[in-house]
Simulated assay, not measured.
Amino acid sequence: MDSFGGLEKLDLREVAEPHAHAGQIRVRVAAAGLNPMDWIMTANDTAGARFGLSLPTGFGSDYAGTVDEVGTGVTGFAIGDRVFGSAISQSVADYVVISLEGSISLGDGVHHTPDGIDDITASTLSIAARTASAALAVLKLERGDTILIGGAAGGVGIFAIQLARLAGANVIGTGSASSFDYLRGLGAEPVTYGAGLAERVQALAPDGITAATDLYGSETVEAARKLGVPDNRISVIAAQIPGVIGVSGINAAPDTLEYIAELVATGKLQVPIAATYPIEQIRAAAEFQSSRHVHGKVVVKL
């Protein structure tokens, strides 16, 4: 992208091939998973500055692939290692160069891909799984809790539903009627979002709900408060609401992705793939992902 703006600004082009220097590895990307933050952070100058982007900028953050260059001083990674992680606004490209030294604020660097996880699945994990884990961790879910998850059919919801279920909680998830079978397949009791949400949730859970996380906006927060859930058991990821805990992926525990990857590798957590696109169709892939009606993850293959 030579300028920030809508997805019409996104073009496919050849650029100079990057190389790994001291303290870095280069990854030959096989797949790049898309997230809402990819188009949100490039939407305008203000958003770009908030994420530390400079023009021209790449697109996409989550990736999976194989290490093909190792800089001097690097330990723990070798040429041929399968890896995954996130590189902010860089992942939809043949190569990403990852620095292994210094602080990592938004991206989470690089992790070894376990046997049993293909690159397409691995490329969906980093941002969404860390965000879901952080959103639930602050709620301290226990067996017997009933949690309302807003925006449950989205990419973060995939992980939030299943992690909440693994913690022993009952899950009610908001979505459109077309997503109900999908939500049930992940282990949630579906409920339609929109006006009257609190009343519909109360009908589904007459004994009440004990926690909530809003993965979309503020509607779920309002419903949870109406149903008596205290603010310290409500979290949000896409809004700032006084008294309610706001989190993002950077708040996740350091070993979150290793834990999630192991769950996926052992079949305890599934990652539905809504669609895959070749890199030549990156704009179509991003437009589909940004439609907000995607049931599962969207992945670009390279």
Rank of each mutant, 00 (worst) to 15 (best):
R165G: 14
F59N: 04
Q202R: 15
K226N: 09
E280I: 02
A253Y: 04
A32W: 03
G58T: 03
S89C: 11
A265G: 14
A16L: 13
I104W: 13
P206S: 01
A275T: 04
L163V: 06
I172C: 01
L148T: 07
Q162T: 05
T276L: 03
V92C: 10
A22C: 02
G144K: 02
A285I: 13
T266G: 07
G249Q: 12
R130A: 11
D62K: 04
G5S: 11
I260N: 04
H295G: 00
I172T: 01
L141M: 12
R225H: 08
L186A: 06
A203L: 12
A134F: 07
R233K: 03
T42P: 04
A78L: 04
A64L: 03
Q162G: 05
S179Y: 02
D38N: 04
Y216A: 14
D118N: 15
D118E: 09
H112G: 11
T113A: 13
Y277Q: 11
A167I: 11
S86Q: 03
A188Y: 06
T266W: 03
T57C: 15
H112D: 11
I237M: 09
T266Q: 11
G196C: 07
L100G: 12
D115I: 10
G175Y: 10
N44Y: 01
I25D: 06
F84L: 09
Q270G: 12
T220Q: 13
L186K: 09
T256N: 13
L12P: 04
A164S: 15
N170M: 08
G116P: 13
A31G: 03
G80L: 02
S179W: 03
A93I: 07
T113L: 15
T146P: 03
P254M: 11
A122E: 14
